[in-house]
Design a protein around this nucleic acid. Structure first.
Length: 1112
RNA sequence: GGGGGGGUAGCUCAAUGGUUAGAGCACCGAGCUUAUAUCUCGGCGGUUCCUGGUUCGAGUCCAGGCCCCCCUACCA
């Protein structure tokens, strides 16, 4: 049995198995919490307490949650539980991230769509509904998983979320009711879904909620008011599968090596017949869009004759560009780049209609331009420029007023007007381009190269560059001087620096987080907030087609007020596409009816607004004041410096000019145990559900909480085994306590002496427990779960391997009753306190222990107990701790001596001499040590010179500089003992004098002695044995063997036996009583017949066999 | 490409320029124990990435090279 029946008779603890089934234990605890509304009681109990505000970073509700989410959720839950135990009131609200491309991509996959066009063809309304439904599906799933993890949040009922999901499809117009904070809330599914997380409905917040979207509109309107919102035309990275631009924030995640064709080709010069510019590119699909060729005015260029062609080429690039044929080249002329500028040339695709239209007949506009960034290390030092197909190209195009040729549409298909390329996919046209280059005689040679190339971080499609209009929030200028030297005007016009100032107000953990965030802010370009997609925030931007004026709507009510058409389309609906697109407003400058730009918002807007939207920034000033800013946010830091942390900071800075949180606690990534990323195909990944089922949530939480947040965690089964092993030690102490208490009928609340009158072991473990409480509190206040776990593991270890091991006899039925009740009371107090302070980390296991040990009602829980710091403060006794520390270390030394001397511990010895190196511990502690070392007497010794030689260690950092090259000789002499001691405490070595502060005198055990030394503590064992000692050793040896046999035979503690020993053991007869007591024998006889042998043991006088018989 | 961090035992990581480079895990041996899946003592295990340099002395400082990770980038 796993021992968790919650209605044990009052006179005893519920018996527990030493080998618990942790998984079923957890399920029992979760059921108990549910049945007793334990979490609800905690909320009621902490209501009105000093607020502690946690702001949850939303989890993307798009898939089941993974073990990596469990790391963060462990932190979130344990810090919240800890704060509740301190008496704080909390909001207990977690959030789901709902809008964005990641949801769209999955819905597209489910529908089997292969292109963006299909979404509009098959109907946008249905697509958006499916996105909402998918979010609700996984919100429900992640809710269930989080509850399984033991995470206490104000959860929605998962079944209700699914009910909403289904109603949305089946009966969207029909009103239904769901549970709210104060009774049922009624509405259509669409309306209710839009209000999830609201003050009325409660539960998790959803970033697709009406309020969340509405507040982002307010933010964008504010940006516009300050002149920071603008439409930019640029050549942007573009995913042709998703049909949308990729912002700078998203770029870094998608770089990967890719093999591409690269090509060297010539551009014939118009005014220098027979001569060509040689250029190189790795993106052949951009060649038809070529407009210019750039050279570095400062570099040197050569005209070479090569295989019948005359080619201009960068002087340093000749060999690389011409490849193996380079030696055949003959240099005809040399010019600097500046001399080439303005040369006109022709190109292969000049006669294509689209090109001719942009450049004039025969590529009239082609020319050589100057660009100082052209390098001498790559290509031909003459760069092919296609202003529509690269961001730097575009910038040059603008400066040089070049025409632009945009060759592909949003799906990556070549537009009409490019001959045979038209209608082809951009990734497939290389061969057609090469054929055209061959045909025109332009091609020189081609090769394949591998380079880092950006890919779509969602679908891994290589990114093209397209000329597009996107909306940006200006980050402001970057000044070339330190932030503190900026003027007020400079700062007020630059959002970048305003955010940096806010960053300074936040505590970043680990501390490098601050530097990373500042670094990102310093370097980031303007924030691209538009996406040419469907499921997301509808950008409230209205650009007038007639006059070009831009209106940005700051709220839904403003939109409804300004609508001149289509307002009915959004009645009763969420502010999403396609319905929102129906609304027209009057242009503020020319009164024309204006439609919304079709773009949706960058999803980090959705997550970034939550410090405002969930804290009722606009709707409830009292609430807002109480909860904003948050005390803590915590997320996995890779990526978040430019994503959530960034958007949270930016939006809070714009809207309220202050920090959204007081502390940011970041942690790393979860990797598989082999140190690689988890991949299903590599067989090293672990699903959350599997981990919960096999290792258990508490073990998982313990493992995560004990990890170092600034490193990546290597998560797996052996790490879990380690964590479980540690927790099981705690469990076993608990099982011991329960077992013995039940067997002697001990119950808490009985008589026990005051702590001050109890024995040293009791006072020591209580003092250590007081220290434990203080240290764990200190660590958790500093968000240092790692330190808290380390201290807890030390506590478990000390309790088990020192306190309990040394005190075990005191719990037995035969022990002195007063002392036994002290021992039980002490162990009980320590265990209860220990599980209290461990409960934020392992909430289920600890509650199971607590309930059995200390429960006074059927509904109590460790999680309803106040943090125990006040209760334990008086237990502290530092002097005792330090004395005991030396006793423990002396015991280690003694064991080490025994091991070296091959004296087994069961053999008692007459005496140990100990140099404690300080005040001698009191008699009681000496008795503990004597017992532990199995010696009759501990003799404290102050002068151990008989056992030791004095050795002098020269302190190198102090004397090294002075001695120089004579140092080695001094060290050697000191090691050989060639040292003269002076009365002053100084010494002379090699004729040089060293003052006492330049040396350290060490005591080193003499060779051959049974002595061990460490840090000034010395233990020597007297190894001479008397017949009495030998006999006592035999008694203990025999007892141990009998106990072993009893255990093997499955005998219980109380059962008595008859022990039969052989005649050869008659010498032990005087000790019969002692033996009988220790092994629970009623009688011992010495007529054992070897044929009936069931046990065997080696004693001083030889091997004997023995047998036991059950009597009761 | 730029910036930062790192490379030490089979694995995870320590070591203000100082004497014989340490822990934990893993492995091996011994010991303790009717609470234990535990615990204790000991052992095994090292080209401190490579090559030079500075120094009485280098894992540590300097230079160059190799490799890994992170941040960042428009690279032809």
């Amino acid at each position: 049995m796993t021992g968790v029946a919650w209605h044990a008779p009052l006179h005893m603890f519920t018996p527990v198995d030493a080998k618990p089934d942790l998984i079923s234990l957890e399920h029992q605890m979760l059921a108990r919490w549910r049945a007793n509304n334990t979490f609800g009681r905690l909320k009621a109990q902490t209501a009105g307490g000093e607020p502690w505000s946690f702001l949850d970073g939303p989890i993307t509700a798009n898939n089941p949650m993974g073990v990596h989410h469990a790391w963060g959720r462990t932190y979130k839950d344990l810090f919240q539980r800890f704060r509740a135990a301190l008496g704080h009131e909390l909001r207990w609200q977690q959030g789901f991230d709902c809008q964005g491309l990641w949801v769209e991509v999955n819905v597209e996959k489910e529908l089997g769509y292969t292109s963006k066009r299909q979404i509009e063809e098959r109907g946008l309304a249905e697509f958006i509904r499916l996105c909402k439904q998918r979010v609700l599906t996984y919100a429900a799933r992640q809710t269930e998983q989080s509850i399984r993890l033991g995470m206490w949040m104000d959860w929605n009922d998962p079944a209700e979320l699914l009910q909403l999901r289904d109603a949305l499809a089946v009966a969207p117009e029909e009103e239904i009711a769901i549970h709210g904070v104060a009774g049922d809330v009624r509405g259509t599914p669409e309306r209710l879904i839009g209000q999830l997380g609201s003050p009325e409905i409660g539960g998790s917040y959803f970033t697709f909620s009406d309020e969340n979207n509405d507040l982002i509109w307010g933010f964008l309107a504010e940006c516009n008011r300050r002149g920071w919102l603008y439409k930019g035309s640029d050549s942007m990275p573009w995913c042709t599968r998703c049909g949308t631009g990729i912002s700078q924030h998203e770029m870094t995640e998608g770089y990967a090596d890719r093999e591409d064709p690269s090509v060297y080709f010539g551009l014939p010069l118009v005014d220098r017949p027979g001569e060509e510019l040689l250029v190189w590119t790795t993106t052949p699909w951009t060649i038809p869009a070529n407009v210019a060729a750039a050279v570095n005015p400062a570099l040197s260029y050569e005209l070479v004759e090569f295989d019948g062609r005359r080619l201009w080429i960068g002087a340093t690039r000749r060999v690389a560009a011409l490849g193996g044929g380079a030696p055949r080249a003959k240099v005809l002329d040399v010019k600097t780049g500046s001399e080439l500028i303005g040369w006109r040339y022709q190109a292969t695709f000049d006669d294509a209609p689209a090109v001719a239209e942009a450049l004039g007949p025969r590529g009239a506009a082609h020319r050589v331009i100057s660009w100082s960034d052209v390098g001498a290390e790559e290509g031909t030092s003459i760069v092919h420029i296609a202003p529509a197909c690269g961001s730097e190209d575009h910038a040059l195009g603008v400066t040089e007023s070049l025409p632009m040729i945009a060759p592909i549409d949003e799906a990556g298909t070549y537009l009409p007007g490019f001959h045979e390329l038209s209608g082809q996919d951009w990734l497939e046209v290389s061969d057609l381009v090469f054929a055209a280059l061959e045909k025109s005689g332009s091609m020189l040679r081609k090769e394949r190269i591998t380079h880092r190339y950006p890919h779509c971080w969602r679908c891994a499609t290589p990114l093209a560059f397209r000329l597009v209009d996107e909306w940006f929030i200006s980050m402001g200028a970057t000044y070339d001087k330190p932030r503190e030297e900026l003027t007020a005007e400079e700062k007020s016009s630059s959002l970048r620096y305003q955010i940096m100032d806010v960053v300074d107000k936040i505590t970043w953990l680990p501390s490098f987080g601050r530097d990373r965030e500042l670094d990102w802010l310093r370097n980031m370009s303007d924030w691209m907030i538009s996406k040419k997609r469907y499921w997301g925030l509808a950008l409230p931007i209205y650009e007038c087609a007639s006059c070009g004026a831009v209106d940005v709507i700051g709220s839904r009510s403003e939109l409804e007020a300004r609508a001149v058409a289509g307002a009915e389309a959004i009645l009763g609906r969420s502010p999403h596409r396609p319905y929102i697109d129906e609304v027209r407003i009057a242009c503020s400058s020319c009164q024309s009816a204006v439609r919304r730009v079709p773009d949706v918002g960058n999803p980090w807007l959705d997550a970034g607004i939550v410090s405002l939207s969930t804290m009722r920034f606009r709707s409830d000033p009292e609430y807002w004041k109480r909860w904003f800013p948050a005390d803590l946010i915590t997320e996995s830091f890779p990526g978040q410096f430019r994503n959530w942390f960034y958007s949270l900071l930016a939006m809070s800075t714009v809207m309220v000019g202050s920090e959204p949180t007081r502390a940011v606690f970041g942690y790393g990534l979860v990797f598989a145990e082999d140190g690689r990323q988890m991949h299903k195909s590599w067989g090293n990944s672990i699903e959350f559900d599997e981990a919960a089922d096999r290792m258990g949530a508490d073990v998982m939480r313990w493992l995560f909480a004990g990890s170092r947040p600034e490193e990546n965690v290597h998560f797996g089964w052996s790490g879990a085994d380690e964590a479980r092993r540690r927790l099981l030690v705690l469990w076993n102490v608990y099982a011991f306590h329960v077992g013995y208490a039940n067997s002697v009928g001990w119950r808490p609340g009985g008589p026990a002496r005051p702590v001050a009158q109890r024995g040293a072991m009791d006072r020591w473990i209580l003092s250590r427990t007081a220290d434990l409480v203080a240290k764990v509190e200190e660590a958790l206040r500093a968000y240092d779960a790692h330190a808290a776990v380390a201290r807890l593991e030390l506590a478990i270890d000390e309790l088990s391997t020192w306190y309990l091991r040394r005190s075990r006899d005191r719990f037995e039925i035969s022990a002195n009753a007063d002392d036994r009740s002290d021992a039980f009371t002490t162990l009980h107090d320590v265990l209860v306190t220990l599980v209290q302070v461990a409960s934020p980390i392992a909430p289920m296991l600890t509650d199971a222990i607590y309930i059995n040990l200390a429960s006074d009602s059927d509904s109590s829980s460790v999680h309803l107990q106040p943090w125990p710091s006040d209760r334990v403060r008086s237990w502290r006794d530092r002097k005792l701790e330090s004395d005991m520390n030396r006793v423990v270390r002396a015991a280690e030394l003694g064991r080490s001596v025994r091991s070296a001397a091959a004296l087994r511990t069961r053999q008692p010895l007459a005496r140990a001499r100990v140099v404690f190196g300080g005040e001698t511990p009191n008699r009681e502690l000496l008795a503990v040590l004597a017992d532990e070392l199995n010696v009759k007497l501990i003799e404290p010794v102050s002068d151990a010179s008989g056992l030791f030689e004095r050795k002098v260690k020269v302190l190198l950092p102090k004397v090294g500089k002075r001695l120089g090259s004579r140092l080695q000789a001094v060290i050697t002499a000191a090691r050989m003992g060639e040292v003269t001691f002076l009365p002053t405490g100084a010494v002379v070595i090699e004729g040089m004098e060293f003052s006492p502060d330049e040396i350290e005198v060490q005591a080193t055990p003499r060779e051959g002695g049974f002595v061990a030394e460490a840090d000034g503590l010395v233990v020597e064992l007297e190894t001479a044995l008397t017949p009495e000692l030998i006999a006592e050793g035999d008694v203990r040896e025999l007892s141990r063997a009998v106990q072993e046999l009893r255990k093997r035979s499955g005998m219980r503690l109380g059962e008595t036996i008859l022990l039969a020993l052989p005649k050869s053991a008659r010498g032990l007869a005087p000790y019969s009583q002692a033996i009988a007591r220790s092994v629970g024998a009623r009688d011992i006889n010495f007529d054992h017949d070897d044929s009936d042998e069931s046990g065997k043991v080696t004693l001083s006088f030889g091997d004997i066999g023995f047998s036991i018989h059950r009597l009761s």
